[in-house]
Design a protein around this nucleic acid. Sequence first.
DNA 1: GAGGCGTGGTC
DNA 2: TGACCAAGCCT
Length: 371
Amino acid sequence: MIEWDAAKIKAFQTTLLDWYDRAGRDLPWRHDQEPYHVWVSEIMLQQTQVQTVIPYYERFMDWFPTLKALADAPEERLLKAWEGLGYYSRVRNMQRCARQLINDYDGQWPQTAAELTELIGIGPYTAGAIASIAFGEAVPAVDGNAYRVFSRLLEIDADVAKPQTRTVFERAISRIISRERPGDFNQAIMDLGASYMTARQPDSAHSPVKAFNQAYLDGVEAQYPVKTKKPRPVPVAYVAVLATMADRWLMVQRPSTGMLANLWTVPLLAVTDLDLADDATDAELLHAVTTTFTKDYQLTLTDVQLVSGRPVTHTFTHQKWTIRLVRATVQPADLAYFDGRAVTEKQLAALPMPKVQEKVFVRYQAETKDR
DNA sequence: GAGGCGTGGTC
DNA sequence: TGACCAAGCCT
C-alpha cells in the first residue's frame, strides 16, 4: 500500500470531482438530497446493479412516497414492491427502520454515520453513504466500488473478503475524501467503479484518474482487489406440488425467517424428507409425495401425476435447487385446516413470489400446453 | 468471523 | 454449465 501527500490528495479530489461534475450519471435518486430518497436507493443498490434498480426505485417512490407510507404499508404490498430484487430481508428491515425512526427519533433522521449505524438494516457502508450524501459528513462509504477503486489506486493488498479489511479502506479513504463535497466524492468513486474501473476488463487507460492509479502504472492492475473465493452452492432437491381446488391454486407462505422469508410458493417438499431410496421409481416418488403432503398440510391429494420434462433448476448464492414438478387436485371440503391460500389466477398476481416460483409456473405451462 | 441471504448479467 | 461479479447487512 502506498501513501499520498497533501498535494497529491488535493489534485486527486479536483480531478475526480471535475470529472464527476462533467460525466457523473443522472440517476433518479440524485435529483435531491432527501435522506429518504438516498436511503431507499442505497438499500436497493446493495449487491444490485443500477440498471436493475432504476424501475424498482421509481415504483417504490410511487407506492411509498414517504417514511410514514412505508411504515404503514402491509407487508404483502412491501414484498410485492421488492419482488425480483432479491435479498428480501432488506425491505422488511426497511419497514422496521421506518417504524424505528417514527417511534424513537420523532420521525427525524439522525445526521451522522455513527448514529445512522444504530438503525435496523443500516450498516457501515449505508451509514457512510447517507451521512455524506444527505448530510455532508466527511465519512467514507466503503462498498465494492471503493474496494475496487482504492485497492488499485493505492495497491492495497488486504483481502476484501475479510470483514476487518473494511477498516483499512476506511482509514485510507478518510485521509483522501473531500471535506467540502464528501457526498459527491463518494458517488464519484461509485461512478468510477462502474465505468472505467470495473471488475473485469477495466479501461484504466482512458480513466480520468489513471495518473493516480498505481496498480495500472505498475502494470499489476489485474491483481486488485485481492479477494478469496466463496464456496460453491450446495445442491438441494425439491418436489413442487402444483395442486388445484376447482380453479384455484394452492399457495403457501414461507416461514418468517430464513430463505425467501414470507414469500409465497406452491408447496415444496424437500426430497430428503420423503425417505426415498436412491433408485426409487416415479411411482414410489408419487406415493411418498402424497403421504408427506397429507402429513404436512392436512390435505388429501388425488390424481397425483408427475409433470414430464426436466426439473426446474435455480441457483442462489449458497444453494442450487433442483425441482421436480407434480400435478394434483384436492377436495374443496378439506380446505378448512389448510394453512395457506387457495387463489384464483387473478389473485395470484397480488402474492409476492420469488423468481424460482415463477420458473416453476412457466415450466408447468410449457409442459402442459397442447395436452 | 464465517456463513446465510436473490437475482441478473457476463464470459 | 459453472464461476464470478454487482452501491452489504445480520447473526
